[in-house]
Design a protein around this nucleic acid. Structure first.
Lengths: 174, 174
DNA sequence: TAGTTGAGGTTGACACATCATCCAATGGAC
DNA sequence: GTCCATTGGATGATGTGTCAACCTCAACTA
């Protein structure tokens, strides 16, 4: 690429602004949620997903897929939430490897208390400040970048260590 | 406010998109930085700030102000970086309370190695995907939200715990 | 049927961020 | 001078996120 090594003024303004805003906004949301309902944003995401399910039950795999989380992150998070009595892990009779997560009363109570505050905060600190065009542009940008990252990672995987292992195995005739 | 409790379709698309993108993008940047130069993004920010200074020296207070970090966060981060030989804390002869952070050779080497990769990644994964209008809109949105959050927090402080303590002290005559 | 592979999940180690608390030096107020 | 609130910073506890290693079960294959 023939592009200059440093960001230009437009890019720099956009990046520093975005970077500071996203960090601050996430911290702000987390704090509000903690104050209003004693939940972290990670807790909130789990509970929202579970609330949308019939009987508040969802397989851990679905949950991971829905939230795009790493499996170890989900495992740690569920352990902590289970210790606090928000959810419970149950064994899946259909497949002994997988697990089912159940929303407990305490968790349902917490999420119902938290949601209105959270929505109000999203409005007050984000959407009420923006025009409809800006809101749409933010969505467009996010989807563009997200699609790009997912495409890149999907391409990287087959050529990554996995692919190399396969090739080596074939080359040595194992 | 008479607004509905739930987000509308436009807001929901924007929020879920933004939220997923920002999490993923940050993770991606962190990973690249770690792979390319063995630095976390937190390390990177510190080192960038120090590199811009004459002789790579900066007071801890300035650093905190520049990065908008909490003091304990900076303290922990500097300790870890000092243990790895990237920076060194020195006492300030002018004020024995404060400290001066010095960029060591190993740190300078790391940041010089990391920067081109980081810039290239910002281009490839963000700016090359967007129009100039989108880049500007992202900056506008970020600055609007950031200004709002800073205004809100500045207003909250004088009426917060600090103010209450002062009033209580005065009321009890202490 | 025994061995292999892969998927689902857990665990431990470590880096990171926040909070509350503590300590030392400073700069006034008296 | 002596208090004393403030400031700059360090520390320990706790919650969070990632990575690597591991275990179990299921499915496939020789």
């Amino acid at each position: 690429m023939a592009e200059p090594a440093r960001l230009n003024a437009r890019e720099l303004r956009s990046w520093t602004g975005y970077h500071r805003m996203s960090a601050r906004f996430a911290a702000c949301l987390n704090q509000s949620l903690l104050k209003d309902a004693g939940l972290s944003y990670a807790d909130y995401e789990i509970l929202v997903a579970l609330r949308e399910c019939p009987e508040g039950r969802m397989s851990a795999g679905e949950l991971r897929c829905e939230l795009r989380w790493e499996k170890s992150r989900l495992s740690h998070q569920l352990r902590r939430m289970q210790e606090r009595g928000l959810v419970r892990r149950e064994t899946n009779p259909a497949d002994a490897r997988s697990a089912v997560v159940r929303l407990l009363d305490k968790g349902r109570c917490a999420i119902e208390k938290a949601t209105p505050h959270h929505t109000a905060r999203l409005r007050a600190d984000l959407f009420d400040l923006l025009t409809e065009e800006q809101i749409d542009t933010l969505a467009d940008i996010s989807e563009t970048v997200l699609a790009h990252l997912e495409r890149r990672e999907a391409e990287a995987l087959p050529d990554g260590p996995h692919g190399i292992e396969r090739i080596e195995r074939e080359a040595t005739g194992r």
